[in-house]
Write a protein that binds this DNA or RNA. Structure first.
Length: 213
DNA sequence: ACATTAATTGTGT
DNA sequence: ACACAATTAATGT
């Protein structure tokens, strides 16, 4: 599929003819396999990825190498923290792990400065990504600060199923525990409770959501 | 089809 | 949190 068409499909806000033409000229596709990193902490940021397929998990690391989940990115989204890095010309503070084979359109940052000035469409897009991500980060912080683990788990399941458009979440309890920064046993026990309440159905590497309300 | 092994999940302390 | 049991999936024969 042509680059322009892909952009129109995934990033409808960017359909301004002049901008699209420039994008076709300067952007490149990049394919990243599951398990690889789109970007790592300390990397120099040369491109902004616009995700058109797959899922990316953004994490930050503390001094001891513990990973802190920031958020997930899906198609039609871009990474706000990478945007900040490239605008202030600093190294990446986050790691972007590819969970599900990703195809991204890579926008070179040198051309981006130009676009910020020339295209209101582009500016708006950048600002919108910021705003959305900021809101999401705030709710994440609220959750960590105020919600008990069982409520956090339910929220986590809801959000993931919504994001991935599926009632069936694949993966292990350990992975969920890592994301929520708790132990695997706590997750297993809470999930078991939810199953007893008939809200989910558990099997190995799989959680089927019946109804979380 | 069966046995072996590894990984995931469940539970008591 | 840890240790261990039980269950399930993957692999070899």
């Amino acid at each position: 599929m042509s680059l322009i068409k892909t952009i129109k499909n995934n990033f409808p806000v960017l359909s301004e003819p002049d901008l699209l033409q420039e994008m076709e000229k300067y952007c490149v596709y990049r394919n990243v396999q599951e398990g690889d990193n789109l970007i790592d902490i300390g990397d120099e940021v040369l491109f902004i990825p616009l995700i058109t397929q797959g899922t990316v998990k953004l994490v930050r690391e503390d001094d001891y190498g513990n990973e802190l989940l920031l958020y997930y990115l899906n198609s039609g989204e871009t990474c706000a923290s990478i945007l900040t890095c490239c605008m202030s010309k600093t190294l990446s503070e986050v790691k972007a792990c590819v969970l599900d084979e990703v195809i991204a359109i890579m926008v070179p940052i040198r051309i981006m400065d130009d676009w910020m000035r020339k295209y209101a469409t582009w500016r708006n897009f950048v600002m919108l990504s910021y705003r959305q991500r900021m809101e999401q980060l705030l709710t994440t912080i609220d959750n960590i600060a105020f919600l008990k683990m069982d409520e956090r788990l339910v929220q986590y399941l809801q959000k993931r199923s919504q994001e991935l458009q599926t009632k069936i979440l694949l993966g292990t309890h350990q992975e969920i525990a890592d994301d929520l920064h708790t132990s695997r046993e706590v997750v297993s026990r809470l999930l078991k409770q939810l199953e007893r309440l008939g809200k989910i159905k558990l099997s190995r590497n799989k959680i089927e959501i019946i109804s979380l309300v």
